[in-house]
Simulated assay, not measured.
Amino acid sequence: MSDLAAIWCASVALACAILAVTRPAIVHALIWLVAALLSLAGCFFALGAGFAGAVQILIYAGAIVAVFVFVVMTADASPEALARERARLAQGWRRPAAAVGLVALPLALGLLAGGTSPAAAPDSGPSLGAILFGPWAVAVEVASGLLLAALMGARHLGRRREEP
Rank of each mutant, 00 (worst) to 15 (best):
Tyr60Phe: 13
Gly115Pro: 10
Ser117Pro: 06
Leu82Trp: 03
Gly92His: 12
Gly92Ala: 12
Val142Gly: 04
Val55Leu: 13
Arg160Val: 07
Ala120Cys: 00
Ala10His: 05
Val100Phe: 12
Leu107Asp: 03
Arg95Ser: 07
Leu128Ile: 04
Thr22Lys: 01
Ala13Arg: 04
Gly125Cys: 08
Pro164Arg: 10
Ser39Met: 02
Leu58Asn: 12
Ile131Glu: 14
Ala63Thr: 15
Ala97Met: 14
Trp32Asn: 14
Phe44Arg: 00
Leu109Glu: 05
Ile31Gly: 09
Phe70Asp: 06
Ala130Tyr: 03
Ala104Met: 10
Glu163Asn: 09
Pro106Tyr: 06
Ala77Asp: 11
Trp8Gly: 06
Gly158His: 05
Leu112Trp: 13
Gly125Leu: 15
Phe51Tyr: 15
Gly62Trp: 06
Pro118Phe: 04
Leu109Val: 15
Ser39Thr: 03
Gly115Glu: 01
Gly145Lys: 01
Ser11Lys: 08
Gly125Ile: 11
Ala130Val: 06
Gly153Asp: 13
His156Glu: 11
Ala99Asn: 05
Gly101His: 02
Gly53Thr: 11
Arg155Gly: 12
Ala119Gly: 08
Gln91Leu: 11
Leu112Ala: 15
Ala46Ser: 14
Ala83Phe: 03
Leu47Thr: 11
Ile131Pro: 00
Ala36Ser: 13
Val12His: 04
Leu89Ser: 11
Leu30Asn: 13
Ala149Tyr: 08
Ala149Lys: 03
Pro118Glu: 07
Ala108Gln: 04
Ala52His: 07
Arg88Thr: 06
Trp32Glu: 12
Ala54Ser: 15
Ser78Gln: 02
Ala120Ile: 05
Trp32His: 11
Ala10Gly: 10
Cys16His: 01
Trp93Leu: 13
Thr22Met: 02
Ser144Cys: 08
Ala121Cys: 00
Glu141Ser: 14
Arg86Glu: 14
Glu163Met: 09
Ala99Trp: 09
Val34Thr: 15
Leu102Pro: 00
Trp32Phe: 14
Val69Leu: 15
Ile131Thr: 12
Ala52Ser: 13
Gly53Phe: 10
Thr22Ser: 03
Phe70Arg: 11
Leu38Lys: 02
Glu163Lys: 07
Ala121Gly: 00
Ile57Glu: 06
Ala61Leu: 03
Phe70Leu: 14
Ile18Ala: 03
Arg161Trp: 03
Val21His: 05
Gly129Ala: 15
Val71Gln: 14
Ala13Val: 07
Gly158Lys: 05
Ala149Val: 12
Arg160Trp: 08
Val65Ala: 12
Arg159Glu: 12
Arg23Met: 09
Ala154Val: 01
Ala143Gln: 07
Ile18Gln: 00
Ser39Phe: 08
Leu157Val: 05
Ala63Met: 13
Cys9His: 15
Ala90Asn: 08
Val12Met: 09
Thr22His: 00
Ser117Ala: 14
Leu111Phe: 15
Val69Gly: 10
Ala29His: 05
Ala75Tyr: 06
Leu132Gln: 10
Leu47Phe: 03
Trp136Asp: 07
Asp3Cys: 01
